[in-house]
Design a protein around this nucleic acid. Structure first.
Lengths: 163, 163
DNA sequence: TTAGCATCATTGACATGTCAATCGGTAGGC
DNA sequence: GCCTACCGATTGACATGTCAATGATGCTAA
C-alpha cells in the first residue's frame, strides 16, 4: 500500500483490487462464521442465535422480565422483528407476554421455566463454540486487532447514519 | 493476555469476559456493516447483494452465461438457494434460463440486456459504498490485519468442517 | 435389459427479516 | 370537551434462506 499515487485517500477513489479482495474475504468469512455458529447452536440446543439473545437478556433482567421495547433496544433489534420473534418463541413456550402493570399500553416479556432451562442448557456449548471458532482461531494480538477493527467500523457506521 | 494462568490455551477453557465482549462487538458490527451495504445497494440500484453477486459472476463469464451449478460453486451458494434466487431474478427480467446445449439435464443462466444494464448502473455506487464504509473506516494496517483475521477464521472454519 | 444409484436442478414447507400499515390509547393545543 | 398527533406494539405482505423431498436423466452392474 504505497502513498506514491496522487490521490490516495480522502479522495473520490474506488477501492483497489487488493482492498476489494480483502473486503470480500472479510465480509464473506464473517458471514460464514455467523452461519456456522448458528448451526452449532441449533444442533446443540434447538435454539437460534436470536432465541439465545432474547433468553440471555431476560435471564439477566430484574425478575427475568423486560418491557418489550426495552428488550428491543437492549439487543438492538427493530420492534417489529422482536414482535415476530417473540410470537414464535411464545408458541414454543420459551417466553410469555402479559400487559405491563406500570406502563400503559406496554407489554412485558417474561422468561418461562422452559425458557430458562433451554438457556441454561445452551450456554455452555455456545460459549465453547465461540471459543473454538473465534478465540482459538486468532492470536491474542489478532483478537485485540479484531476489537479495534470492529470499533473503527462501528464508528464509521455511526458517522454515516443512513441519510 | 498473560500466559501465567495454568490452562491458558489449548484447554477446555471458556472465553474470558474481554474475549466475549470483543466477539460480540465483532460479530454484531460486521452484521451491521453487511446490512448497511445491502440497503445502500438497494436504494442506489434496486438490487440486493445477492443479485449483485449473480450479475457480477455472469458479467465476467464467457458469453455472459454460466451453468447453474458452476454459478453456485463460483459464488459459494447452495443450489437450492440459487434456484430460488434465479427464479426471482428471472421474474424481474435480469437473467434468463435455458437448457444447456452441452450438458444433459444442465441449465444455463444467461445475462439479459436489462440485467447487464442494472449491473453497470450498480457497480460504481456499490464500490463507492465499500470504500466509504470499509476502506475509509480503517487504517492501511488495519485493512491488512482484517485480511489476516479473515484468513485465520476461514482456516479455522475449514479445519472444523461441520462434523 | 433393467434395477438401482448418482447427479442436476427445482420445488414445497417453513423460519426469519424488513417495511409499511394498523390498532388502541394518551396527551396537548385550542 | 374534542381533534390531532404521537407512541408502543402488533400485523400483513413480501423477500430471502434452509432443509428435505421430488422430478428428470444418465450410468453401471447383475
Amino acid at each position: 500500500m504505497t502513498d506514491a499515487t496522487p490521490d490516495r485517500r480522502g479522495g473520490r477513489q474506488l477501492p483497489t483490487a487488493d482492498e476489494l479482495r480483502i473486503w470480500r474475504d472479510f465480509i464473506e468469512t464473517t458471514a460464514a462464521l455467523s452461519s456456522r455458529l448458528e448451526s452449532r447452536l441449533q444442533s446443540d440446543s434447538a435454539l437460534s442465535t436470536g432465541d439465545y439473545a432474547v433468553l440471555l437478556a431476560l435471564s439477566e433482567a430484574q425478575g427475568q422480565a423486560m418491557r418489550s421495547s426495552e428488550l428491543a433496544t437492549h439487543i438492538g433489534w427493530e420492534r417489529s422483528r422482536l414482535s415476530h420473534h417473540l410470537g414464535r418463541m411464545e408458541r414454543r413456550g420459551l417466553i410469555r407476554r402479559q400487559e405491563c402493570a406500570t406502563v400503559p399500553r406496554g407489554s412485558e416479556v417474561l422468561l418461562t421455566t422452559a425458557g430458562a432451562e433451554a438457556f441454561r442448557g445452551a450456554t455452555f456449548p455456545h460459549l465453547r463454540a465461540i471459543r473454538e471458532l473465534f478465540v482459538d482461531a486468532l492470536t491474542p494480538d489478532q483478537i485485540v486487532a479484531a476489537g479495534e477493527i470492529a470499533a473503527a467500523l462501528r464508528a464509521r457506521l455511526d458517522v454515516l447514519r443512513p441519510h
